[in-house]
Nucleic acid binder design. Structure first.
Length: 576
DNA sequence: GCCGTTTTCGGCCCGACTGTTTTCAGTCG
């Protein structure tokens, strides 16, 4: 079992206990164990073998025994006992708004509801009106919630949410009387997906702003609107629809509200603890000692009052940010990046020419790019046959000659074949400046086979980077099971970088994997995998992901000048 | 279930909102 497997079981047990009505603190301790394990840089099996499980934060005697049981037998008797009482499908009811553990238990016990489908049918038929907490308003809300779940499959990709937020933010800022408007929530923290968009604005006349807001052109449904807030559904085609919550807050306490609604919930909980230790209270209105206001106007003031540096939103996940004496000044930002080494053109499945891509990159202030078309096995993606690649190398070199103020390298995104060999011979790879190797097909379910396949590819002296290492497509395709820790160690050993693919469908490596890989010594490359000039801007999402993985400038290969990249390649080829 | 100790129990983050079997439990963030 992997760390993620163990964590999932603990999470499931927590939810099952919650439905059964177990003590809330007991429930949270299971969640805490799950979290600790999922964020662990070490293999849980190793820790268990070394008898060090008890050293983990929040893991006591009882959890040690349960982890050991899981690792030894692959099963957990507590989980099985609970599942004998509560069917697994009942867990999914919790995704519906206004249904928590209590109502889920009620639905299942009193009405025999075991799935979302059951619930929808029963709600529509008006069969639940006798149940406590299922009045007409609740029924309407729940039905809308179920429809939303069905329509959006849960969460929205960061890239789409970003587009919508930009458009909507502009509309709100343009309203008379709005002094300031900002987004909060998981969008601000740069999470790969977003549930609802949380938006804040500062204005004196909240009711007027709310009235205007619900009448905006793209608002298709008003879910609630009262006083200083509104929850609406907005629809911006072709990007899609999303729920947006706007709160109008006073400018004097904007920082308090922004911090609060940015979350994460766990980060906020830790902040409240810190406030409580000092006998203070912290809320969306500010930091208070009794009735006396200590800080509210800016986030910085609040953090400072609690003896903390201002913590960047991407770090607010309670993953160790409270132990920081100061936030690293060189935490990665977009401006640190000097180039992009994963770019497609019309020669394979891109939409722009080499020259167009190079000019667009130069426009962004990049010093270098690398053209990396697909290889012959990726037929659907217009992969280049060996003979065609020879010609393309000449074409790209010719463009490179002509370009001023930007270096254009020639590379490839070569397929990693099922046995770990590459889709081009070494002699051909040797002619290229930089080689990304990626898996595009035959992503198996066997973690050992997948891992071996990638390890083998990394051992090739011409492979400089593993592209999108897990192959996931957010909301579309699961990540293939692969041992990231093993790959990161080998990456560090062989001098191979691991990619953060900034495309908002991929964001692969994902945040926790980024941090793990960094901790194990791997260098990271943040690329866009741009298939057109319009996609360079997606680098933003890769950088956010990198920040969520706590990367600093020095951890990222493409913050280095071009000669240093060339040295990185040469060192591996020469076996240094 | 965990943790720390004033050490084997008692506390663990908490305010706002909402529907409503009207006085608060349940949910949310």
């Amino acid at each position: 079992m992997t760390n993620a497997d163990v964590a999932q079981v603990f999470n499931e047990v927590a939810t099952l206990l919650e439905i059964k009505g177990a003590d809330g603190f007991r429930v949270s301790s299971y969640r805490r164990v799950a979290r600790t394990i999922s964020e662990l840089a070490t293999d849980i099996n190793e820790l268990a073998a070394r008898r060090e499980l008890h050293t983990l934060e929040g893991v006591g005697k009882s959890s040690v025994a349960k982890i050991e049981e899981l690792l030894e037998t692959g099963r957990l008797s507590l989980r099985e006992e609970l599942l004998a009482e509560v069917p697994e499908s009942v867990l999914r009811l919790l995704a519906v708004p206004n249904i928590g553990p209590k109502k889920a238990a009620l639905l299942w016990r009193e009405a025999g509801i075991e799935s979302l489908g059951d619930l929808k049918t029963a709600l529509q038929a008006g069969k639940l009106s006798s149940l406590k907490g299922f009045g007409p308003k609740m029924v309407t809300k729940m039905l809308r919630g179920i429809e939303f779940i069905e329509r959006s499959a849960g969460r929205t990709r960061l890239g789409m949410a970003w587009k919508i937020s930009t458009l909507l933010g502009g509309a709100v800022l343009a309203m008379k009387g709005v002094e300031r408007a900002e987004f909060a929530g998981s969008l601000r923290r740069g999470r790969e997906t977003v549930g609802d968009l949380d938006m804040l604005c500062a204005a004196n006349d909240p009711q007027r702003i709310i009235r205007r807001f619900v009448q905006l052109q793209h608002v298709t449904q008003v879910i609630t609107a009262s006083g200083n807030k509104a929850l609406v559904l907005v629809d911006y085609q072709p990007f899609g629809s999303l729920r947006v919550e706007l709160r109008v807050v006073p400018a004097e306490s904007f920082g308090a509200a922004w911090r609060y609604y940015t979350g994460s919930k766990r980060h906020d909980a830790r902040m409240r603890e810190r406030a409580a230790e000092r006998g203070w209270t912290l809320s969306e209105h500010g930091l208070f000692e009794g009735d006396r206001l200590i800080a509210a106007q800016t986030e910085e003031e609040i953090y400072a009052a609690l003896d903390l540096p201002w913590i960047p939103p991407e770090l607010r996940e309670d993953r160790g940010e409270f132990e920081l004496k100061k936030v690293p000044r060189d935490l990665i930002i977009e401006r640190h990046l000097r180039g992009d080494l994963h770019i497609h053109t019309v020669a394979s499945d891109g939409r722009n020419t080499v020259e167009e891509m190079a000019l667009a990159a130069k426009e962004r202030g990049y010093e270098y790019i690398c053209i990396t078309e697909h290889s012959q096995s990726s037929a659907i993606a217009g992969g280049l046959k060996e003979s065609v690649l020879h010609g393309h190398i000449k074409d790209v070199r010719a463009v490179a000659e002509r370009m001023e103020d930007i270096t254009v390298w020639m590379g490839t995104e070569v397929d990693i074949l099922p046995d770990g060999r590459l889709d081009y011979p070494d002699e051909l790879l040797a002619e290229l400046d930089f080689v990304i190797a990626s898996i595009h097909s035959g992503m198996g379910t066997d973690i050992e086979a997948n891992t071996r396949r990638t390890l083998t590819a990394m051992q090739n002296p011409y492979v400089n980077c593993i592209g999108h290492p897990t192959g996931r497509l957010i909301n579309q395709r699961e990540a293939m099971p692969i041992d990231i820790a093993a790959i990161a160690k080998e990456a560090a050993r062989t001098g191979t970088a691991m990619e953060i693919n900034s495309n908002n469908y991929r964001l692969d490596l994902k945040d926790e994997h980024v941090r793990l890989a960094r901790d194990l010594g791997a260098k990271i490359l943040i690329n866009t995998d741009a298939h057109g000039v319009d996609q360079f801007e997606q680098i933003r999402f890769g950088v956010m992901t990198a920040r969520r993985g706590w990367l600093r400038k020095g951890d990222v290969l493409n913050t280095r000048p071009e000669n240093s990249i060339a040295l990185f390649v040469a060192a591996k080829r020469q076996g240094r």
